[in-house]
Design a protein around this nucleic acid. Structure first.
Lengths: 335, 335
DNA sequence: GTTTTTTCCGCAAACGTTTGCGTATAGAAT
DNA sequence: ATTCTATACGCAAACGTTTGCGGAAAAAAC
């Protein structure tokens, strides 16, 4: 009971006509008689004819595929982004193929190459933490493959980008800490070569200035993972004796820091307030619930896919656009 | 400064030879002179020639693509599965294209059709909660497209499958509750038409029997989402007056139930023990940390991809295999 | 009855690649 | 000088589809 995929030629043979006739009949081409159209379409339905997208791609020099490169699928933010991309892409007849860089530069390069090998029509990308050389991205531009950056954009490549207002988000949450009386705020910062890390740091600084609090360099630590929190454990614990709040560049780090403090007898938010960034599901579930900044991955993914597909739709190359989504302060129990 | 993709014919023109010569030269075919091979390969490297995978696919009737259909990417378990799939697939020269059903039957059908339209070589699939008709899967078998089920398998389709030992996991965790003195255990159960839900329920029953505890029908509730917990709120609260433990079919539901109880003054685990299934990141982060069963999505994804690719490698169709991964009890503070 | 128009369809090329087979050139053997 | 044998390469078909152009047959106009 097998029924392999049937091709246009198969149908043509069945009716003793040429493949071109079948091709046209299926599209109700005016030069094909109504009767023929009907007969062929009926038969095509019956045998469940489905056009071969690969052959179509070869012919039209288009794969109807968009490639996605992200650091890690397992992070809620990125899986939301993908979910958003998927939603609009499939709606427009595009499929999406996904690669992870695992925050590894080399992997990212390989992935981009694999995607271009597969002749994707465009690429949606979030650069990895370890990416400093952007030659592979420049190559994309040369090959005229449209790219839309999501969240983590390359500063040196001119392209479309969809971002969160990281600066404002960070400013808001730090401002909130300051308003509730905190003055000595440690910042667990992300890599400063990524706009995300830089912008959040800038927001932190801005909030301090607005409130007339002097920035203390030794209170900004390069620390953006739970593992790094563990590594820096004693340093953090010694710093904390003078501090009354922590603002971490992401929720995982914030939670890890909170755990560390709690394990050492500190009370959150009693003695130390803690805030994160991203509004990961864990934020609302830890104890105390984490004050953080909501970042809508789903919307970012949707918008990025929309921008890319629009550019693929052959409209005369417009200027590159940057869409910035607002960030939302989520005040919870931790600070 | 553009450099569009170069084809074999482009290279052929450059050297005044035929495309066939170039094709062979690139593969070090013995019938091509060494000198020619060298010159052509050198040039190909210089202009960064990359074979057109689409054309290759057309020719070889193979797309080197595997399709994945899962309920929801944003769930940690499924994103881990994808991560595993991705890991082995890319290593073997396959790319993966991902679809979500969002637990919707109709979406699942559409997705499967989209994947076959794109002539994927095989499909990795977890059926959605609302899927009861399996005709779309039967069609895959008819079209001779290999399928490997992951976690949620179709009982009526004979195919490869990669599962977690849900029965044993559930039995272990319920057994653990019983050993710590709980006797009146409510089960928040998943859909019984899915093997996952059924097996976990069976494990629950088995543990009760082993400990000589009688099963009470009214203590098994069809409830597998936080939303459903909220819906059933009052019913649950009335039941709980007689119970001393809850075993939920997944961690989200367990956490939601725990929250509900805590909000109503119950102490976990003092008065009521709570256990979940899956070991989602939130399990270790809630307060008290959730006792649960670890389920290794990453391994499942890797194994499923391996099984599929092996079947695609043209080895004479062996018997279908079912690989069952063990489940691991994670005892934490909640019970 | 001839010419023109219309209707309906087929041929062939193209997309990029692979591959069986045919063949020109050169050198070697006779 | 003729025949043979390698050597090194080209031709063409195929994968499934689309599309410009050409053309046979039928209908319409004269």
């Amino acid at each position: 009971m097998k029924s392999p995929q049937v091709s246009i030629s198969d149908i043509a043979r069945e009716f003793g006509v040429s493949p071109s006739t079948v091709s046209r009949a299926l599209k109700n081409h005016p030069e094909i008689s109504e009767a023929t159209c009907r007969r062929i379409q009926e038969y095509a339905r019956k045998v469940n004819y489905r056009p071969n997208v690969i052959a179509l791609g070869l012919k039209q020099q288009k794969s109807f595929t968009i490639g996605v490169v992200i650091p890690e699928i397992v992070h809620h933010f990125f899986s939301s982004v993908i979910s958003g991309i998927e939603e609009v892409a499939y709606g427009q007849g595009y499929r999406v193929i996904i690669c992870q860089s695992n925050e590894d530069y080399h992997r990212e390069v390989i992935n981009v190459a694999a995607l271009t090998d597969h002749r994707v029509d465009g690429i949606l990308l979030s650069i990895s933490k370890s990416t400093r050389d952007h030659a592979h991205l420049r190559r994309l531009v040369e090959q005229e493959i449209p790219v839309v950056f999501m969240d983590r954009a390359s500063p040196e490549i001119d392209s479309d980008r969809v971002l969160t207002n990281d600066f404002e988000g960070a400013r808001m949450v730090v401002s909130h800490l300051l308003k509730t009386g905190r003055r000595n705020i440690i910042h667990l910062a992300g890599p400063q070569h990524l706009c995300v890390g830089r912008e959040r740091y800038r927001g932190y600084v801005e909030a301090l200035q607005e409130h007339g609090v002097e920035e203390r360099e030794e209170w900004v630590l390069k620390c953006d993972t739970p593992a790094r929190v563990k590594q820096l454990g004693s340093k953090l614990l010694s710093l904390i004796t003078e501090a009354d709040a922590i603002f971490a560049v992401n929720d995982f780090t914030a939670v890890a820091a909170m755990r560390l403090l709690q394990d050492h007898g500190y009370e959150v938010p009693g003695q130390i307030a803690v805030a994160g960034f991203g509004d990961d599901p864990i934020a609302s579930v830890v104890h105390p619930a984490l004050t953080t900044v909501e970042q809508r991955g789903y919307d970012i993914g949707k918008e990025a896919a929309r921008m890319l597909i629009q550019r693929l739709s052959g409209e005369p190359a417009k200027e590159f656009r940057t869409k910035v989504f607002p960030a939302f302060l989520k005040v919870r129990a931790s600070g």
